[in-house]
């Protein structure tokens, strides 16, 4: 994975596979504390304590099409390379929360990458799931909540091309403003 936005996409897709109806993605760039925090939280089916214990092992996966699972292990590695860590809290029936921390200014920290493309891909690819994206940088913040958009749209799906274009424009401008 070249950047953190791809890791976020990967972990959020896990949430979709876990049957989540809402996925929260929070990125906090605290420049004063030199801390980058990424939280991905879903209300999917969760993991058992036994599975949780071994989930960061690359040779563990829920997939039946292959025998290795690299998503979380790769993300953990990216965090550790930047003096950080990846923590998972999960409860069966309630959901999963992944918290990743890194030193913001660490020379080996991967760049955040194209978060707009990640969020758009998630929304367009999974129009029945809601996404709440919260990105803070210093004192500035950007929030996108698909529940608000959905309630205005009525029966028009979130993956309608015109809706996707609007969201794209909003994401691009919103993320530029907080830089």
């Amino acid at each position: 994975m070249e950047d953190l936005s791809l890791h976020v996409l990967d972990v959020a897709e896990n949430g979709v596979s876990a049957g989540a109806s809402i996925i929260g993605i929070m990125i906090d760039e605290d420049l004063e504390a030199d801390l980058l925090t990424i939280v991905i939280e879903d209300n999917g089916k969760g993991m058992s304590p036994e599975f949780l214990h071994k989930v960061l092992d690359p040779f563990v996966t829920t997939r039946s099409t292959r025998r290795v699972g690299l998503g979380l292990s790769l993300f953990e590695q990216a965090a550790m390379e930047a003096d950080g860590a990846l923590n998972i809290e999960s409860t069966v029936g309630t959901g999963t929360k992944i918290v990743v921390t890194m030193r913001h200014g660490h020379i080996d920290r991967k760049p955040i990458g194209d978060m707009a493309a990640t969020i758009l891909t998630l929304i367009e690819g999974n129009p029945s799931v809601d996404f709440v994206y919260n990105h803070k940088k210093g004192a500035n913040a950007y929030v996108l909540d698909t529940r608000e958009i959905r309630s205005e749209l009525g029966t028009v799906p979130l993956n309608h091309p015109q809706v996707v274009s609007l969201i794209k424009e909003n994401l691009t401008e919103g993320l530029k403003e907080i830089q």
Binding site: L6, L9, E13, S17, R63, T65, R66, D114, A117, T118, L120, T121, E124, G125, N126, P127, N159, H160, P161, V164, S165, K168
Partner: peptide
Amino acid sequence: ARDVMSLFRELIAEKDMQDVILTNSGCAG
């Protein structure tokens, strides 16, 4: 894959193709 998805999104928007659905799935093995 994300770049491929973005490209299809652009192409669909460019041609305003309302009858084409773009979606995603997991690993196929």
